[in-house]
Design a protein around this nucleic acid. Structure first.
Lengths: 210, 210
DNA sequence: AGATTGAGTGAACGTGCGTACACTCAAAGT
DNA sequence: ACTTTGAGTGTACGCACGTTCACTCAATCT
């Protein structure tokens, strides 16, 4: 119970090393894909000896799952913050496009990791990402179900539209990830494209089954 | 010029081995992702010694590019055949959904390869796939531009819609790839989802900018 | 003050890898 | 009938890998 300032030191140091490992893996994943980076590479980049890796993760696969968790918690935080902004109610489409581009730009490495490992990763990592995305679809469906044109749709139709939105969000995120830095024109182009796609879908809403 | 029956023998044998290498790589890629299968694995699976691999490809990267080419030529042939079918004019949406599911089912391994390596592969393979997909978007845009509601749209709007279609085609293909065999119910569900998404977009067309 | 814990070390292992090199031996060319 | 060609062989190399094991030594606990 006498833990206060000094007690933190050991735990803190361990946590710092853990974060260094995560950051190193993310950095190395920028160019290579998680499945082809090695435990030794990660350890080297994090400034520790290969065996020390095992003090933090049982295997590279567990490190991958930790990265998935970290990536999605980042994204969730950003979306929660954006929802507080009142202007999203006025123009949900423009707001969504802005949030998307900003979020991806802010944590590019995380998004690049998710985009790539969603289809290319190990089975475990792939499943974890798919699960998170499925959660997203369901959450978004709840939000959509409250919109004027949609409130009396069949549940499965709302789910479908939600999938359509998330799917396009993922695709647009991929584009932003591959966007070179310092090109605000390209960024604006992607935003504009995203806005148009969403508008198109929303227009489809209005006349759905009419 | 005296090449007739016997002359083919050497060439034929070489071609047969080449196809064995391609097929082996495709087979191994089912579970592992192209970047993490080794030259030696491919050679072993194809029934040759590792060094013999070099008689056919300079590197694994070139093998990957050959697989991209093979995959897309398969897809192109299928779409060309489907376009001859007169019923695609009556109901282009249902026809597209059918073609998609059938094509992916017919050469699942090729589609799985493309879907995975599109984002997870080496830079060269990724670029090759992106190039092929860009071609597809342009080709589809030409077809779309002839449709009644679209004929006087701005070119960039048509391109955007075309991207939207191809993007969703890719996503749906991913779903079919991950679909377990012998589940016609799941297959029909994916088809139905694809139909709905396309209908939604088409409805958006009608009222675009009105 | 002394004992315990546990993050990080360093050497060593077996394995699979890509690639080099010199080779065989039928088919194809002359 | 001979030479040439070239797909496929077999050995051998150096290297990076994941994992093992016995270790150090400062922070923490008693």
């Amino acid at each position: 119970m006498t833990e206060s300032v000094q007690t933190a030191s050991r735990q803190e140091q361990k946590e710092r090393t853990r974060q260094a490992i995560l950051a190193s893996a993310l950095e190395l994943t920028r160019t290579e894909g998680f499945a082809q980076i090695s435990l030794r590479q990660v350890a080297r980049h994090a400034g520790i000896v290969p065996t020390a890796f095992y003090r933090h993760f049982d295997s590279m696969d567990e490190l991958g799952l930790a990265l998935v968790e970290q990536s999605f918690s980042t994204l969730r935080r950003m979306i929660r913050e954006a929802q507080r902004d009142p202007k999203v109610f006025d123009n949900i489409i423009d707001a969504a496009a802005d949030v998307l581009v900003e979020a991806v730009k802010h944590s590019k490495a995380h998004f690049a990791f998710v985009a790539r490992e969603r289809v290319g990763g190990s089975a475990a990592v792939r499943r974890a990402i798919q699960h998170e995305l499925d959660l997203f679809v369901s959450e978004l469906a709840v939000v959509l179900a409250r919109l004027p044109n949609i409130e009396n749709w069949a549940t499965e139709d709302v789910q479908m539209v939600s999938r359509l939105f998330v799917r396009n969000m993922v695709s647009n995120a991929e584009e932003v990830v591959e966007m070179p830095d310092g090109r605000p024109d390209l960024e604006e182009k992607i935003k504009e494209g995203a806005r148009r796609q969403m508008r198109l879908i929303v227009i489809g809403f209005r006349d759905w089954k009419s």
